[in-house]
Amino acid sequence: MKELMKGNEAFAEAAIRAGCRFFAGYPITPQSEVLEYLSRRMPEVGGVFIQSESELAGISMVYGAAAAGFRAMTSSSGPGYSLLQEGISYIASAELPCVVMDVMRYGSGLGDIFTGQSDYWQAVYNGGHGDYRTIVYAPSSVQEMADLTVMAFGKAEERRNPVTILSDASISQMMAPVELPAMACHDPDAPAWALKGKGNGHFKRHTSVMYYMNEYDGYVRAKYEKIEKEDQRWESLETEDAEIVLVAYGISSRICEEAMRSARAQGRRVGLIRPISLYPYPVNAFDGLAPRAFLSVEMSALGQMARDVALACGMRAPVYSMLGGTRLYSCSDVEARIGEILGAAHGAF
């Protein structure tokens, strides 16, 4: 039976069903429904909900809960997500699992509360200091929000690394029918890393300093190489015969899919690659494709993802950008841009 839920609510409920029993965070638009929902729901399942005094305190509490073996998470939006970065770096360095959601709104500083995709660089290329990456999933529907949240908890434990859900105001504020996952149990005493007090057991420690480990450089490199090799996720639509391949994630991918279907109906050969994991970037999706052009479409004024598209396709074809920001492009804007590029590409031949 499906429920009608906001993306934010689907995230919160899916986390509960994945066995998450610890949330600490601070409200911020357009993410506040997560706290509203969990403040009621967490006590029902015997979990801990804390509205922390700041984002920095919240992520530090998540660090502690993760060290004790709990499935733990926090969520925020741009300005608050910046404050989480120090803690994320510590958790990544200590190799503990956790889930962090950033619901992107547009802009730097306080910016605006309207939808945007301008935290790409921050989420995908480490907002915090040091040699780490976080695995980043970008949902494009309320259903996928629920599914990826469950997957995120599993992946975080499998890789002993924070996983970021990079949502945006549209996907998080949108309501749609969702099939929720079944309730799963998580035993916080089960993970090998769970600290419970030494007692008669052996000594365990979590630390973000690395002078306890030999060959750290090779170790950390191998860890992320494995993730890059094995954890790519994407959806390809009608790319095989495409003259132009759109590349977009989150809310932009929905607009692009509509533009693609409309262009196909008019006989234009348009395809779409929708990255689901932004780190690792799904470079394998570009294997064997030889369109006349790629078009990266994102709601950022500076083209944050476009260079990843260029790297992924090896510049076998020109990579164009369609950019947004304070203005939300529509399906017809994307179609017009496709027409411009194909016109120019034909002219060039």
Binding site: K2, L4, T29, P30, I113, F114, S170, Q173, M174, M175, A176, P177
Partner: peptide
């Protein structure tokens, strides 16, 4: 809008609902 969205869901339709929010 939410009532119409729920009606659509009950009838097995695909549906999205998104509020305007802002200042």
């Amino acid at each position: 809008g939410l009532i119409l969205a729920r009606t659509a869901m009950i009838l097995g339709k695909n549906v999205t609902w998104i509020p305007s929010y802002g200042s």
